[in-house]
Design a protein around this nucleic acid. Sequence first.
DNA 1: TTAATAGTGTCTGTAAGACAATATATC
DNA 2: GATATATTGTCTTACAGACACTATTAA
Lengths: 215, 215
Amino acid sequence: MPITTVSVVPFTLTNDALEVLLRRRYGGRLDGELGLPSDFVDLDQDPDLNATAIRVLREQVGLDVDYFIEQLETFSGTAPDPRGWSLSVVYYAVVPDRSLPPSDHFELRPVGGLPELPSDLDRIIAAAVRRVRAKSAYSSLPAFLLPIEFTLPDLQDAYERVTGAKLDKVSFRRKIEDENFLAPILGAMRRGKSGRPAQLYRLSERTLREFDRKI
Amino acid sequence: MPITTVSVVPFTLTNDALEVLLRRRYGGRLDGELGLPSDFVDLDQDPDLNATAIRVLREQVGLDVDYFIEQLETFSGTAPDPRGWSLSVVYYAVVPDRSLPPSDHFELRPVGGLPELPSDLDRIIAAAVRRVRAKSAYSSLPAFLLPIEFTLPDLQDAYERVTGAKLDKVSFRRKIEDENFLAPILGAMRRGKSGRPAQLYRLSERTLREFDRKI
DNA sequence: TTAATAGTGTCTGTAAGACAATATATC
DNA sequence: GATATATTGTCTTACAGACACTATTAA
């Protein structure tokens, strides 16, 4: 059987940009190198691949709850691992910025300015970025990049920063209203340096909502 | 390492409905049972998983060229295979009806009326059907279910039968015109029992075209 | 000619974008 | 009040669906 690992590409949205979390390895063959959080399947403890991916995030990044994680694709071939034919089941996760405590064990890098990485890692991350961008155009995904409570301007900003497209304010609010996946937090407002305070919302469901599509 | 196999869910569109091709096994532990075409990775011959999937279709179904194949998802856990923790990388393929010669080794079954199958197979096929239906709503996928040459009414019928939605003729033709993935075959028409003959078209590109989506 | 199917023209309603107006905060 | 930001109202434009019309075949 091929050597099989499970990796996770964790995304978050900082003040600057959409960023990928890379793990820095200490010790062993790859000491000092940046890579993705990943591990072998634990045939005794993990009931399935999802469990492995969640465990990787918990053990290697310290993330425990309240994020969106989904299988991306399984990569394969002789290139990735010099030890031979290998198979890498890749997940991606979308987490709020605030849930990542600073650590020596990982670094955030903007998806536009990734460091030198092995070419297979590059391909994997590029595929994950494409997925996040594409899915943001027809789902509630960007809301999972925000803290629990956020305003509509926050959300519009998240959609715009992830997809790279400017959105019309009125259309955006109509769309979000129609899709009906937010609940206003009654009486709770966010005030900025100036200007009218904005209504706070939170997701009204813990799962991703995909918007309908007609031919 | 877990036991790893590669399976393919092959779809086609007969006169009746969208159908899945199931392989009938002869000999061995599962003699007489219906299942998906599948095999282990050949670490010496297969450069990657894609190659394995293509080989499975070639060796077990006799399909050699001109179809669309794509990775669906990797399924896992202890349920699927009584021999222990297993991992199944699943592909799906979309092939024209005519390219399937009759054979004792497989049977077509409409996706609405599948026979009794192990529950993990059921889940896998259901996921593949969802993918084909969803993707048909924003891509040229249904065209890959048709013979090389087809008419616009053929194509509309394929979209309708796969997605289950009735489409407006004018809107459909406008959409296809806009997406611009068909080339008319100059002077070639299809005549039916009666009525005006229809212009024949073929795909102007060998790869799937995905339509744009705005938020 | 009639019936059948392919293909087109055009009207109408719905949804998206532009833009302006209003609301409520800070300074 | 001036400025900034949120939120809403409304006009315009683009597109999808409805429907009717024309075109081209067989019988």
